[in-house]
Design a protein around this nucleic acid. Structure first.
Lengths: 244, 244
DNA sequence: CAGTGGTCTAGACCACCCT
DNA sequence: GGGTGGTCTAGACCACTGG
């Protein structure tokens, strides 16, 4: 079945062939591709092998299957993007950023925090405050809130270099199930401005994250406020689901 | 092979079983799971069917395969998130947002635009300027640049309700391959502030997108400036690749 | 060498869709 | 009914890993 340049599995050949036909526009969204048995004959391979190739097209989002009817070229989706985010931010290339611990305290959750963490107002929670340093200057103020768990103290030097998920993972035993993230623009409060060595009302990118366990219980809340002129987020979209 | 409550394919049973064992912590990252033939005996199913189930675990990011050695529980990844973005922004629930076309012009690309679109400075490009209206108030100023293509005029009423990818798709024939996106915080220029009926220096979320063809050629550039107090982006992370 | 995963086959039976 | 996809089998041979 494999002719000249071998090495490449047959099912992968089929995948590439059809992918190429879709990307070149010879097959358009909504078009039906040949049936599995037809493809089997065309390539001289068994149906299971055909299905192997089609599976790749399916989870690349290039085709969609309708039981009893056939496989159809999918419509591109452009409303989702993959965000690349790590707290150290600016340093993802430079790799030189650093946290400066400003303090760890037990505080009573105010209305907002309590609501986000689904706790009664006034419940005691840990508050961890850090400064994120870029090349030379501070770029962000980082505040995190973790529910207080009996017998689970927060060890300062464990925190200093840990990112949010790592902190939560160490604090709780329960497995992280999902992280919700919201990104917005605000301006710096006087306090933040002082920490970031700039003027108040400076534009700022605010990233809020809430980590949830599988049962929906919030395990932590993180709010990072970046200097708008020293940080940006990057994201990529591919028209078909996941380009791996 | 299928016992009492049928309806659920065997390979999917196996997938769920192992997934559950990983999520509950009984199987930890780095652990090896039983070999394919062992699983076949355990479940009384053929090896191909076992592999079907394992494939699900693999592209859910829960396990990783090492040829000749075995399948191992993967480490969670928390540095990528999926962003949900559509230009209309605020209206993704309300669904009532609207574009107001401010103008379509042919202009000469300045240094910045030329560089981003990989064109010589001064090349003529289309500039499309729109206002995005939320419930009642304007929420964003939207400027897009498209390379000038001979015999491809821009039709105003086609633009009014189209989003960026749709505009580019209609303008170019070439297929969209990827969209790069950058998200940052700035403050409104006097012009933007006037359009958005607020004061200059108001915090603003700036989303810049560049659409590329497969050969790397830029097909368009979009810059949307949202009022910081009326818009936020949402994203989600799952520790294991794609939770579908 | 024995054990692992990677590819592939040539059937089978079922569920679904359409006419 | 005939065509489609959905599931599954019981083998086969190959490629890689380790002792």
């Amino acid at each position: 079945m494999n002719d000249e340049r071998d090495m490449v599995p047959v099912f992968y050949q089929l995948f590439q062939d059809i992918k190429e036909q879709i990307e070149s526009g010879r097959l358009k969204p909504g078009d039906m591709i040949p049936s599995e048995s037809q493809l089997g004959k065309m390539y001289g391979i068994s149906r299971m092998t055909v299905r192997r190739g089609l599976a790749l097209l399916i989870d690349a989002g290039l085709i969609e299957t309708v039981h009893g009817k056939g496989n159809f070229v999918a419509k591109p989706r452009l409303d989702r993007a993959t965000l690349f985010f790590n707290e150290t931010g600016v340093a993802d290339e430079a790799g030189t950023s650093v946290f400066k611990l400003l303090g760890v305290r037990r505080v009573e959750a105010d209305v907002l925090i309590a609501k986000k963490l689904k706790l009664p107002e006034g419940t005691r929670v840990f508050m961890i405050k850090r400064l994120i340093i870029g090349e030379k200057f501070p770029v962000a103020v980082d505040v995190k809130y973790l529910p207080y768990i009996k017998g689970k103290p927060i060890v300062e030097n464990e925190i200093e270099y840990a990112d949010f998920p790592a902190m939560v993972a160490r604090h709780t035993d329960v497995m992280i199930h999902r992280i919700d993230m919201s990104i917005s623009a605000t301006s710096l409060t006087p306090e933040e401005a002082e920490l970031l060595k700039t003027e108040p009302r400076h534009p700022a990118l605010c990233i809020m994250q809430i980590i949830y366990a599988k049962d929906g219980r919030p395990l932590g809340l993180s709010r990072i406020v970046y200097r708008g002129d020293m940080y940006e987020l990057k994201a990529v979209t591919y028209p078909y689901a996941t380009e791996r």
